[in-house]
């Protein structure tokens, strides 16, 4: 009897341990966001958004950084989406079981775990030096596109796999070719899940710093990029640069820039979650 009671108390205690763990993660996140808001929010104004970098913290702004981030976002999306979705479609619909399919699958699982800085080294050698793109937006975007490719591929495959086989059968039975079936039935039916995956992948690319440092993104760029071949900086680079400086003014700038970056990243995640939830409600299967 006594033993059973001890066990019950242990059970309850453990439950509270679980609650504490769960909440601690969220509380840390909250403390952390609050801290940054307190530090940085009063620094955000129009001149902060529209000023070039400067060695005086009060005059420095993030114009080149956020335009660079915007460029990187668009270019990376343009490169990674077609390739990632294409590869996902190939792996799920075309590749026949065998050594090649196995190799591709293991390879993608492994790529997803390669540290981002290694992609930076790849980008530096292949895009910056061998292909001669220099430390340009294009080289940076290509590097980030390779980095997020596994995420998009996996999301595409899962989305396609969720489309009922019966729909494909119906399409084939009406005389549709494989590509007609994929492009007119499978992809539209899985579009919202694929888009969710793409947005989450891009939100990752937008927050990356390490590979861009290796590729050669600059900390100080006194002009707004006009073409994909221009040199660039991005918000995470700018934050890293400001964090590394001792003056308090730059710390505040970093906090302010973090707020802008987090707004962007969380907005993307919010959109992705919204699309996913809406699709889940609508989906018949």
């Amino acid at each position: 009897m006594n033993n059973a009671r001890v066990n019950r108390i242990k059970d309850v205690l453990f439950k509270y341990f679980g609650i504490v763990c769960t909440l601690s993660g969220l509380i840390i996140l909250a403390i952390f966001i609050l801290n940054i808001l307190i530090d940085g929010v009063q620094r955000i104004d129009w001149s902060f958004m529209s000023s070039l970098p400067s060695r005086f913290p009060e005059r420095a702004g993030i114009l080149t950084a956020w335009t660079g981030t915007f460029w990187i976002f668009c270019l990376t999306a343009a490169i990674a989406i077609p390739i990632g979705v294409g590869a996902g479609v190939y792996l799920e619909e075309y590749s026949k079981k065998g050594w090649l399919a196995n190799l591709l699958e293991i390879n993608i699982a492994n790529l997803a775990g390669v540290p981002s800085i290694i992609y930076g080294i790849l980008g530096l050698e292949v895009f910056v030096r061998i292909l001669g793109f220099g430390a340009s937006l294009l080289a940076g975007s290509l590097t980030l596109a390779l980095l997020i490719l596994p995420i998009i591929i996996v999301a595409t495959r899962e989305a396609i796999r969720a489309v009922p086989k019966t729909i494909k059968e119906a399409s084939f039975a009406l005389g549709a070719t494989k590509w007609q079936t994929i492009s007119r039935q499978v992809l539209p039916a899985s579009a919202s899940s694929i888009i969710t995956g793409i947005i989450l992948a891009l939100s990752r690319a937008v927050g990356e710093t390490a590979p861009l440092i290796v590729v050669g993104a600059l900390a100080y760029v006194p002009f707004v990029a006009k073409t994909p071949m221009d040199e660039f900086t991005v918000l995470p680079m700018q934050i890293f640069n400001w964090v590394s400086r001792p003056q308090h003014g730059f710390t505040i700038n970093a906090a302010a820039a973090i707020i802008v970056l987090l707004c962007f990243v969380f907005l993307m995640i919010g959109i992705a979650v919204y699309i996913r939830n809406r699709a889940q409600k609508k989906n018949p299967w």
Binding site: R204, G207, T209, P236
Partner: peptide
């Protein structure tokens, strides 16, 4: 928690 950029 996993989505926050690491520089942050």
């Amino acid at each position: 928690l996993a989505a926050v950029p690491t520089v942050v």
